Amino acid sequence: MAKVLYSVTMSVDGFITGPDGDMQWMRPYLGPNPEVDDLIRRIGSILAGRRSHDGDDPHKGEAGEGHAFGGGWSGPLFVLTHRPPTSPESGVTYVDEFAKAIAMAKEAAGDKYVNVIGANVAKQCIEAGELDEVLLLFVPVMLGDGTRLFDQPGGRTVALERLSVTDNELATNLWFKVVR
Score class of each variant (00 low, 15 high):
Lys3Ile: 09
Thr9Trp: 10
Thr9Gln: 10
Met10Arg: 06
Ser11Val: 00
Phe15Pro: 01
Ile16Trp: 04
Gly18Pro: 03
Pro19Cys: 05
Asp22His: 05
Asp22Arg: 06
Asp22Glu: 11
Gln24Ile: 01
Met26Gly: 10
Met26Pro: 05
Pro28Glu: 11
Tyr29Val: 00
Tyr29Met: 02
Leu30Met: 13
Leu30Trp: 07
Leu30Asp: 06
Gly31Met: 08
Gly31Thr: 06
Asn33Pro: 02
Asp37Arg: 10
Asp38Val: 13
Leu39Val: 08
Arg41Gln: 07
Ile46Asp: 01
Leu47Asp: 00
Ala48Val: 01
Ser52His: 05
His53Glu: 06
His53Gly: 08
Asp56Ala: 15
Asp56Arg: 15
Asp57Tyr: 02
His59Tyr: 15
Gly61Pro: 05
Glu62Phe: 04
Ala63Tyr: 06
Glu65Val: 01
Gly66Pro: 07
Gly66Glu: 02
Gly66Gln: 02
Ala68Ser: 11
Ala68Val: 12
Gly70Tyr: 07
Gly70Trp: 06
Gly72Glu: 09
Gly72Trp: 11
Trp73Ile: 05
His82Lys: 04
Pro85Val: 07
Pro85Met: 08
Thr86Asp: 13
Pro88Tyr: 03
Pro88Lys: 14
Pro88Met: 12
Val92Gly: 09
Asp96Leu: 05
Glu97Met: 11
Lys100Glu: 13
Ala101His: 04
Ala101Tyr: 02
Ile102Ser: 00
Ile102Asp: 00
Ile102Cys: 01
Ala103Thr: 11
Met104Lys: 05
Ala105Thr: 12
Lys106Trp: 04
Glu107Val: 10
Glu107Trp: 04
Glu107Cys: 08
Ala109Thr: 01
Gly110Tyr: 06
Gly110Leu: 06
Tyr113Cys: 06
Val114Pro: 00
Val116Ile: 15
Ile117Phe: 01
Gly118Pro: 01
Gly118Gln: 05
Ala119Ile: 01
Asn120Lys: 06
Ala122Tyr: 00
Gln124Ser: 15
Gln124Glu: 15
Gln124Thr: 12
Ile126Trp: 06
Ile126Pro: 03
Glu127Arg: 15
Ala128Ile: 03
Leu131Tyr: 02
Leu131Cys: 08
Asp132His: 14
Asp132Asn: 15
Glu133Arg: 13
Glu133Ile: 12
Phe138Ile: 12
Val139Pro: 02
Pro140Asn: 10
Pro140Ala: 10
Met142Glu: 12
Met142Gln: 14
Met142Ser: 13
Leu143Val: 01
Leu143Ala: 09
Asp145Asn: 15
Gly146Cys: 08
Gly146Gln: 07
Phe150Arg: 05
Asp151Lys: 13
Pro153Ile: 04
Gly155Asn: 08
Ala159Ile: 05
Val165Trp: 02
Thr172Cys: 09
Asn173Val: 09
Trp175Glu: 11
Val178Ser: 11
Arg180Leu: 10
